[in-house]
């Protein structure tokens, strides 16, 4: 028996919106720790890892560890039946091939029961090593989103360079080139507006913008984004989900050969 109840149902809608352009199908792993997912895009260039801890739910019951294979696109369709202020309950029984979503309006005057078919998904879990990163940039998530959107109108790749001067995002395309530099700014009164750069070594890495732009679909989940970089390693773009966990995107770099 698996049952979880999330009063802030819109959060699940936003989480699925943040994944659906990257991943087609995924196994959701259910355990006493929480509700989690690890999945790659179809070309195996990017990986998303989601964690929603059990303590973050109003009710969380998971009698045994298991995985539920779901089509993310179908899940997004089902969640369209929920209003933003609805309470969402997800239920599944042992051995069944369906999952039930229940959406309750806050005043309890409307209840929707939606049943979705589960799928068998053959996917491998990748071991993500704990790494010390050479540079970590924390910045407003909306700022990062708008930088990626702006640069993707000019070019296909973004080069992220972290130095003592700040973090520079640059691109080049047929019509020209552009770069945007953000300097450390920790003096702001609002912590969500701060840009903080922790640098052990200067780093320069290049990534495909189409993936990074997809990651910024998670912007509404967190006011800040953390970008962790090391030479010749995948970047980690992390959005914390308050009181619950995180969504982390990993993207393999483009390396000169």
């Amino acid at each position: 028996m698996f049952e979880l109840r999330l009063v802030q149902g819109s959060l699940l809608k936003r989480v699925i919106d943040a994944i659906k352009d990257l991943v087609n199908d995924a196994n959701f792993d259910c355990s006493s720790t929480g509700f989690s997912l690890q999945a790659m895009d179809s070309s195996h260039v990017a990986l998303v890892a989601l964690l929603l801890r059990s303590e973050g739910f109003e009710h969380f019951r998971c009698d045994r560890t298991f995985s539920m294979g779901m089509s993310i696109a179908n899940m997004a369709k089902m969640l369209k039946c929920a209003s933003n202020d609805d309470i969402i309950t997800i239920k599944a029984d042992d051995g069944t091939d369906t999952v039930t979503f229940m959406f309750e309006s806050p005043s309890q005057d409307k209840i929707s029961d939606i049943e979705m078919k589960l799928m068998d998904i053959d996917s491998d879990h990748l071991g993500i090593p704990d790494a010390e990163y050479e540079a970590i940039v924390r910045m407003p998530s909306t700022e990062f989103g708008s930088i990626c959107t702006s640069l993707s109108t000019i070019g296909d790749t973004v080069t992220i360079a972290v130095s003592k001067q700040g973090v520079t995002f640059s691109t080049k395309g047929d019509i020209g080139s552009g770069n945007i530099t953000c300097r450390q700014n920790s003096s702001t009164e609002k912590p969500e507006e701060a840009t903080i750069i922790e640098m052990k070594e200067p780093v320069v890495l290049t990534f495909a913008l189409k993936y990074i732009t997809t990651f910024t679909k998670a912007t509404s989940l967190s006011s800040q984004v953390t970008i962790s970089l090391s030479s010749d390693m995948p970047v980690v773009v992390e959005y914390k989900i308050a009181e619950m966990g995180h969504i982390r995107y990993y993207l393999a770099p483009k390396i000169e050969e």
């Binding site: 195996h44 260039v45 879990h125 990748l126 071991g127 090593p129 990993y250 770099p253 483009k254 050969e257």
Partner: peptide
């Protein structure tokens, strides 16, 4: 030439 690597080149099966 910049070559796009796969994530599986960096992280292996758990």
């Amino acid at each position: 030439v910049n070559k796009q690597h796969q994530i599986t080149a960096f992280f292996t099966k758990a």
